[in-house]
Amino acid sequence: MAHVTMIHGIGQKPEEAALLGIWRRALAGGPHETRIDLGANGVSSSMVYWADVLYPEPDPNVAAYESIDDLEALRSDVDNIGQTITMDEAADPDWLARLAGRLLLEDPALEIPEDPLNYGSDVEERFPLPWALKQRFLGAFLRDVHHYLFNVAWTPRSSETYQVQHEIRRRFVEKIASGAKKGRPHVVVSHSMGTVIAYDCLVRVPDCPGVDALVTLGSPLGIDEVQDKLAPEWTRSDGFPSQKVEGDWVNIFDRLDVVAALDPVLANDFRRGGLEVVRDIHEPNSGVWRHSLRKYFEGPLLRTELKRLLQI
């Protein structure tokens, strides 16, 4: 039977087993005609868990990740994001400044208000988010993506130091190899920063096993500065991971997702032999916080595609 390997995005998360359960229940909820109960369909699953590489402890507030309330979804993604990054701490300050500017940040050295959900702003922008809240979330995104792409040495706990990229790559390859033994088709489902990790490993880690399909949700892979750090293995004309992805790459996005909105369409940037083959699908999420994994998992278009890829 089929197997799904999942990989999460930025921020502090509940511990691995709890997070995997949250993702499985999110797929199994909602309208009966679209829900995907992996267990009932004989589909096994695993989670590439990397939050502990950057964050000192798991998030104990599991209920926030289960909630359908928009403010709770916001809090689950922005509470306890850890410290952000300053220009002085960057491996390449010019790269960080360019990325910060493109993400509409005023300064990557962020001032975090005590309660960003109640923080007002007169800044006019295209995303339906309070300005300070967006700063807080994207400050964490900048830190996490920087530390991964530049393979920063990081000490989340006094007794442990990781080379961030090396450790997360090791975990991804290990879970993909294990998943490959459990069933076919084998599909990778990735969210947010997890899409960068999945792509990097499938294209740039020679001993990473192949998979049958790749799903990216709310991905920042369209951003030039991210693509620059994936070269030379990535090229615009032949960036599709053909050697490791046997079937489809399906990219689901919401145009108001603060992470994906800068360049949500990937087919033109990840061609195969010059041809556009990535299946880009716009599926609007509801409410203020469009980047929520739970909201992506509730989408009928995503569920239709995942059923097709898993052959259920």
Results as ranks from 00 to 15, higher is better:
3 H>R: 09
14 P>N: 10
18 A>P: 04
19 L>C: 08
23 W>R: 09
23 W>I: 04
25 R>W: 06
29 G>A: 15
31 P>I: 03
32 H>S: 11
34 T>P: 02
36 I>V: 11
37 D>V: 02
41 N>R: 14
42 G>E: 12
43 V>S: 09
47 M>R: 00
48 V>K: 03
57 E>Y: 09
60 P>S: 09
62 V>H: 04
65 Y>S: 02
71 L>S: 12
72 E>M: 01
79 D>I: 08
79 D>K: 13
79 D>N: 14
80 N>D: 12
83 Q>R: 14
84 T>V: 08
93 P>E: 13
94 D>K: 14
95 W>D: 11
95 W>A: 13
99 L>A: 02
100 A>D: 08
102 R>S: 10
104 L>M: 11
109 A>F: 03
110 L>G: 00
112 I>C: 06
115 D>P: 02
119 Y>V: 13
121 S>F: 07
122 D>K: 13
128 P>F: 12
132 A>W: 14
136 R>P: 01
137 F>N: 03
138 L>E: 00
141 F>N: 00
141 F>C: 03
144 D>V: 08
149 L>C: 07
153 A>G: 05
154 W>M: 01
157 R>C: 11
158 S>Y: 01
158 S>A: 10
169 R>N: 15
170 R>V: 02
171 R>G: 01
179 G>L: 02
181 K>P: 14
182 K>C: 06
186 H>C: 11
188 V>Q: 05
190 S>P: 11
191 H>G: 05
197 I>T: 09
203 V>S: 08
204 R>S: 02
205 V>C: 10
206 P>Q: 14
207 D>E: 15
212 D>F: 05
212 D>L: 09
212 D>M: 07
223 I>S: 05
224 D>N: 09
225 E>S: 03
225 E>P: 01
231 A>Q: 11
235 T>E: 07
239 G>I: 01
241 P>V: 12
242 S>T: 14
248 D>W: 00
248 D>M: 11
251 N>E: 08
254 D>C: 13
254 D>P: 12
256 L>C: 07
257 D>S: 05
258 V>W: 06
266 L>E: 01
267 A>I: 06
271 R>T: 10
280 D>K: 13
286 S>C: 02
288 V>T: 14
288 V>A: 14
290 R>Y: 08
294 R>I: 02
298 E>L: 06
299 G>P: 04
303 R>Y: 06
304 T>N: 08
307 K>W: 03
311 Q>H: 09
